[in-house]
Write a protein that binds this DNA or RNA. Structure first.
Lengths: 224, 224
DNA sequence: CAGAATCCCATTCGATACTG
DNA sequence: CAGTATCGAATGGGATTCTG
């Protein structure tokens, strides 16, 4: 590199520029996304990010750890594998991911029919939530079983809590072989009984409540 | 590229992933930033982005035009040069830049003493604004003359309007040879009379109002 | 001034194979 | 499972030159 010696740094005090140095590298933000709903293992992250190589994942995890976005934790003996977990500051990146997602979804070039990870879908719910409709379902418990991933979503009066774990005691549970199958129902206006017939989707429990829950979410109008 | 054919695309329906495809490439978002306060010429953008080469700037402008973030406009005869201007959707990226900046500024590794473009500084005001203090200065007109760039900032009761142009009739005007000199006064707690003595800064007009205006802005606390 | 076109080196990436 | 090591191919980006 030349005498100005800026391999990849912008030398710019602007916070936006610094953010791009921290998470702007290819794959970095998607790794953060996969950790946004709780710690994960190397292999699980990799499986959620088709196309990433072990090498790149290793490099990105190292760099995100170095900058303090995440930490590597060795779990204690019973199940002695290790996991990657966001720091408090790492978790604070969610609003930024939401703004990015909301903005990009306004492009007509955005294709919501592409494959999707389970975490992506669950996070998209929080992003595309219409808070004014929350009162209609506040307090209910909606489960999601997407492939091997399990989540519980609990709308409050002001936002939507999402946690990993078996949806025991949920009022309704969506079952799907993968996240992409659910997208059509949530955002694409595809009738749920059609998904149940042909896509291996199943709604258990209070179906009426489940459908009212889905009504909380909508894609933004196209701006370009 | 292999049969999965993903030269640089994520093949991911996630809006955040798509946003990174649109503006995640090196320099792209900084180019958008430089246009956020109005159209600019190729050479002006380049001068605001030390380190970018003509080739890269050309490539990025072309790709941002292709995706609909900006348009190239040929100004009519009197001054027949051309400018680059954000589309409505491009302008809609400001909140996203603000979230990125707010988040990154919470890192202890963020260095606000680095060089800064004039546009960066003006945008940072909107980002770091404390809206609860707006009533104290709403309606006043504060000018900025930073090198060759001129801006007018007008706080309303809910936000801060910023436009390019000579700050005629402003209640107070900050003069500075460059943006970096002002950063110390706005965010670093450096006394203004010290900046005026040693940094070539000057405050014209209602000095008391100018200092109250500066009190609207503060960097966020460190989270890491 | 506003780029387009070339050249060429450095970096990066993906694939594959290997290891504790 | 969680990486490391290596290698060839692709890409990126700076410098330079050319053009209207």
């Amino acid at each position: 590199m030349g005498q100005s010696g800026h391999g990849k740094w912008y030398y710019d005090a602007c916070g936006t520029a610094f953010a791009m140095e921290l998470i702007g590298e290819r794959w970095s933000l998607l790794i953060v996304r996969e950790l946004m709903l709780g710690p994960r293992r190397f292999t699980d992250i990799r499986a959620s990010l088709p196309g990433i190589s072990a090498k790149v994942l290793t490099e990105r995890l190292a760099s995100l750890e170095e900058t303090g976005v995440l930490v590597r934790r060795h779990l204690p003996p019973p199940g002695k594998f290790q996991v990657y977990e966001l720091t408090a500051w790492g978790y604070a990146a969610e609003p930024l991911m939401q703004e990015l997602g909301r903005w990009a979804a306004q492009s007509s070039a955005h294709d919501p029919t592409l494959p999707l990870s389970a975490v992506s879908l669950m996070l998209s719910l929080r992003t595309m939530l219409d808070p004014s409709r929350l009162p209609y379902v506040a307090g209910c418990r909606i489960g999601f079983v997407i492939g091997e991933d399990r989540f519980l979503a609990v709308p409050t009066r002001t936002d939507l809590a999402i946690s990993r774990g078996a949806p025991d005691g949920a009022d309704a549970v969506f079952h799907s072989p993968d996240a992409a199958c659910l997208v059509g129902g949530v955002y694409g206006g595809v009738p749920w009984d059609e998904l149940e017939r042909s896509a291996g989707v199943r709604i258990a429990g209070n179906r009426d409540l489940a459908l009212r829950f889905i009504n909380l979410f909508a894609l933004p109008p196209k701006l370009a």
